[in-house]
Structures are given as structure tokens and as C-alpha cells.
Amino acid sequence: MTSLTRAVAAVVLLWAGAAQADVTASPQHVMFEVKFGPYVPHLDDSVGFGGKTPFSDLFGDSSSAKGSTPSWGLLGQGELDYQFFNRFGILGIGISAGYHYRTAKSFVLDPATKKYCDVKVDERGGRRYVIPSSPERQVAYSDCISDDEDQLNVVPLSLLLSYRFDVLDRRFQIPIIPYVKIGLAYYVWWFGNSSSYVASVPTKDSDGNDKFLDASGGSLGLVVHPGLALDLSALDPVAARAIDQEVGLNRVTAFVELNYSWVNGFGQARKLNLSDTTLSAGLGFEF
């Protein structure tokens, strides 16, 4: 392409963009979001754990305090909204799904005592690993773990009602959109290990017979996501309108939101507590 051809093409595009500047926006009904943020479920707060802290013991850093919450991992989520009210702000209903996983070395049976390590508080408030034999024997973390891994998988699912206050953006060209989403959440979880995708847990039934259960389940709860979005169309309104006319993409936003999740099966004993409060950031596409 010669420089003359490029110049002509640029002029045509600019003209086309300017000509479309006055064109009304296409209908807008759908929003798709992708977002990422830190997440650490508060499993040890599960009612059924009865004060035990197996999540911290197994997944926590060996140099951290006994019972402390393990470090965060990445949670990726996608959300699809249907926007059914679009006058003074936008009301929408949507579904979201995500995935989070974390791994830790499983504890190994001590061949001499046929017991597993316990994690206890040391004199400095940290943790120490002991073989609960008589007398108790302190060991290094590396002596407690096997080469197998436990993997916690969480798939957070939510049904959301959202309100986006985009009046400032639409009427006053201030590209800030505060919003809030509230919803019902169901977080699916399962534990895998080095041998299987879903681990089996040995247990006993009500008659005392040995049986194995799949290490999987889910917890119901509520989520609230207040956030602030920046309308990226403000960077180049002409191009944004041209894109809207071409492919129907009304608006692209970058956002930061608070993820408040209260997901513990509403306090039931046999539900894991997968709650967390954290921030996430992402991009939204409105069509």
C-alpha cells in the first residue's frame, strides 16, 4: 500500500467516523464481563469443622501461624447479563461462573508410628509439626508431606440482579459508572488428588461400617458486588460509535469491584464455608 493510498483511506475513515457521530446508538440488551481477582475461601470457618483448621494446616504456608488463612489464589470469572431496563440507569439480570483451584502436598503416614503429623502452635505463635506419638516428636514440614497433592477446586455460580448508574456517562459524558450487583450464589467445590480428579474420603456410615464418599459438594449463599466502571468509549467516542454501528458493541468498560461473598450454606453444619471479601478487576462489553 502506497503512502497516498494510506492517506486516502485515513481520510475516508475519519469522514465515515464523523458522519456516524450523530447516528443513534444500537439497541443494548446484553453485557458480558470477564474479571479476575484474588480469592481464598474461609474453609476453616465451616461450622462442621468444629474449630479444627485443616485448610490452614494443609494449604497454609509452613512458616505461617497455626490457623492462619492460606494465601490467596486467582479466581477467574465470566458474567452474562440481560439488561431489561434501560432508562435511568440499567437494570439487568445475569449469571456468572468462575473457577479457582489451589494445591497442597498431602500429609503422609509416618511409617514408624503409623500416624500423621499434627500442626500445633509453637512458642512464637507460629506453627510446628509433630508426630502425635508418645512422647510427641517434633518433625520438619518436609517429613510430614508426601509427593501427592490435594487440589481444591471451586466453581462459583451466581444468579445476579444488577443496577448500573450510567446517567453520568450518557447524559453528562462523565465516563464513570457506579454499579451494584446482588445475587444468590451456589459454589460448587471438589477435592482432587494426584490419583483422581475427585478424591474419595474414607468415612463410616451410621452403623459404623466403612464407606467412601466423593469429596465434592456445594454451598449456597449470597453475593454482593458494588463496583466502579470506566467507560473506555470516552477515549475515542468517534471510533466507539463506529464500532457500535458495525458490530453492535455499545460500550466497553474497565471496572473494579468488591466481591463480597457469604457462601456457607446459610450456616448448615455439613456445608463448607467458601466466603471471602476481595477485589476483582476486569472488562465489560455491552451489546
Partner: peptide, 29 residues
């Protein structure tokens, strides 16, 4: 050697073992 996962200490009997699927989340408890 045998290994121990997170739920092994919790699931000493079936009644303690975390579960999920179904409608039990809105049950009597």
C-alpha cells in the same frame, strides 16, 4: 505410604462430612 487429605479429619463419620448437591441447603437445620 497412605496420605491424608483435608477432609479425612473432618469425615470421621458420614454425618460430619461436607456435602452439597440437592436441596439440603434449605432443609430443616
Amino acid at each position: 505410604q497412605p496420605t491424608k487429605g483435608l477432609l479425612d479429619d473432618v469425615c470421621t463419620n458420614e454425618a460430619n462430612c461436607p456435602t452439597g448437591f440437592g436441596c439440603s441447603a434449605l432443609g430443616a437445620s
